[in-house]
Design a protein around this nucleic acid. Structure first.
Lengths: 138, 138
DNA sequence: TCCTTCAGCGCAACCCGGTTGCATAGAGAT
DNA sequence: ATCTCTATGCAACCGGGTTGCGCTGAAGGA
């Protein structure tokens, strides 16, 4: 789609904009929800699994995307929203539908953060609710 | 240890108390925190992996234990507290130490439950905070 | 007590997502 | 044009989880 925006975004984060990286980022930005490595593999047929894997690794390190573990056994990826780095406060709620097996980002609901006992230091939060999505409820 | 308590607990939930099931339940009840399948395998050297796996499957179905996905790639198990079935309100907070790779149960802190958008129906919550535990902080 | 039956178990193989080593291709610098 | 170093593809590997299958041992009935 608009690969220019992707290139811009990549360079802003100090990541060299190679063709594959543009493809991966573009796929993630155009995704309706989260995407797993397998999802990306399916969309980007020509690109090797390990290349996507390493690309995601780099993206994550440079705070272009973050990963969510929804407990399905395959990690989901999602582009970071803000221009700046994702902080713990930016983590939002995710919802996993046990019927259609989709993972939803509830961006408007930030993940709650409880008070931890003395001595624990929080770095990130993984908050995922499982159940039935609106499509599967009825 | 006190296998009598295990037998009682098993039968109360309608699970036949075989020797292996008693061993597994006993190991879980005496564990300081959560245990993975690999942990159980290590403790119960004589018992086959698949037997433990199927035992846990049965335990979970009968609400003797519940599983937690802490994002490490290996699912953790923990005995259900109350006499009754685990409900969504019983889910508590877990903490994963990124340094020593232990998963802590913060039983006193129940997992927060946010209001979901119209149409979503929650069945369970997975709330895990990652960071450094007291031992690893200093 | 003996026989039948079936759940429980061990073994081995398999599956799948993720990960890594290595050789090549390609972009950027000189 | 050549050199260098990063990015990529390929193939193999890894580990947790899962399954098929045959044996075993306990429960139940004659």
């Amino acid at each position: 789609m608009d690969s220019l925006r992707c290139i811009e975004r990549l360079e802003k984060k100090g990541v060299r904009a190679t063709s594959i990286r543009i493809l991966v980022l573009d796929a993630l930005m155009n995704a309706s929800g989260t995407m797993s490595l397998a999802d990306l593999e399916a969309v980007l047929e020509t690109v090797d699994k390990s290349s996507i894997f390493r690309t995601l690794e780099i993206f994550e390190k440079h705070h272009l995307v973050h990963s969510i573990d929804d407990g399905t056994g395959s990690i989901k990826f999602e582009v970071c929203e803000g221009e700046d780095d994702c902080t713990i406060a930016d983590m939002h709620t995710h919802f996993y539908c046990e019927k259609c097996h989709r993972t939803f980002c509830l961006k408007e609901i930030s993940a709650p953060l409880v008070d931890l006992p003395e001595g624990f230091q929080a770095n990130s939060v993984n908050y995922i609710i499982k159940g039935l999505c609106p499509d599967c409820c009825r």
